[in-house]
């Protein structure tokens, strides 16, 4: 091996200094990333984003709807693509004929809806773009019951603020997936409980028999395998208290961007 003369030229001094400075900077940023108070500061941007987006969005602002020819050939099923729960498996083998959606919480008339009953409710069909938080997008056609009329039919109590979706799938060993939206999104015309995708019954990897479509937010808000809808005044007692499976894991509860 050739022994190279070690001189600390100005150039190598600057390069080494920049490398050391860069490493310290990145290390410092990793530490900041894990500091609870610094994270609290970063998280404040979410409130500002929600406020600003709600300022420019009206109840009539609709997510763009596309043509049949725009429907993606491949639509990636993300997150859970199957459910391990034996009761769910039995129901899916039966075509979900005995399956029931339960609605409870701050409603005047709690109850259950079969898939057939949901199909007879006012429905909406929409071809929309699904934007995953990871960065990819796919276009699909969804048909489902509008959530607003369902909530009107069960009657919301005056202190109802959030609609929580409890799901059959588990992404981690201990916790079932769950999501929540506020009443602004719940009563938006494009917010539907979808039971059809691309003209066929909703496939299991995409959340059969029922998934949420909340078109003005990112993909993880579109809860799959919905079993139970709970109307609450606050979601602080559910999961880790941040309103959704992914919000409990550091993502934004308001996923408008």
């Amino acid at each position: 091996m050739i022994k190279r003369k070690r001189t600390l030229s100005r150039r190598s001094f600057i390069i080494r200094g920049a490398a050391a400075g860069g490493a310290a900077l990145l290390g410092g940023c990793d530490q900041l990333s894990q500091s609870p108070s610094f994270r609290d500061m970063l998280n404040r941007a979410e409130g500002l984003t929600e406020w600003a987006q709600r300022l420019v969005l009206s109840q009539r602002s609709m997510a763009r709807e596309y043509a049949e020819s725009d429907i993606s050939v491949y639509f990636k099923p993300n997150g859970s693509t199957r459910v391990a729960d034996p009761e769910y498996i039995r129901a899916s083998q039966n075509g979900f004929v005995d399956w029931k959606l339960r609605i409870s919480g701050l409603v005047e008339r709690p109850g259950e809806f079969s898939l057939d009953e949901l199909r007879r409710l006012p429905s909406r069909t929409q071809i929309t773009r699904h934007d995953c938080v990871e960065g990819w997008s796919a276009i699909g056609k969804w048909k489902g019951a509008q959530l607003g009329p369902i909530l009107q039919s069960v009657g919301l109590k005056p202190d109802a603020r959030f609609i929580v979706f409890h799901c059959a799938d588990k992404l981690s060993f201990f916790s079932n997936y769950y999501e929540s939206i506020d009443l602004i999104d719940a009563f938006h015309p494009q917010t539907i409980l979808a039971y059809e995708m691309n003209g066929a019954a909703l496939p299991v990897p995409h959340g059969a028999p029922l998934r949420l479509r909340v078109e003005r937010q990112l993909g993880y808000k579109h809860a799959k395998y919905i079993q139970h809808i709970e109307v609450v005044a606050s979601y602080s007692d559910i999961g880790d208290g941040r309103g959704s499976y992914w919000a409990d894991r550091g993502y934004e509860w308001y996923a408008g961007i």
Binding site: C29, D30, R39, A45, E46, G250, E252
Partner: peptide, 23 residues
């Protein structure tokens, strides 16, 4: 990893940094 923040893979935290500093 020396070009990402955080250096380890963490999309949620990367987004938090991004949107705070975007504002």
């Amino acid at each position: 990893s020396w070009l990402t923040l955080p250096s380890y893979r963490d999309l949620a935290t990367g987004r938090r940094w991004h949107f705070f500093f975007a504002w």
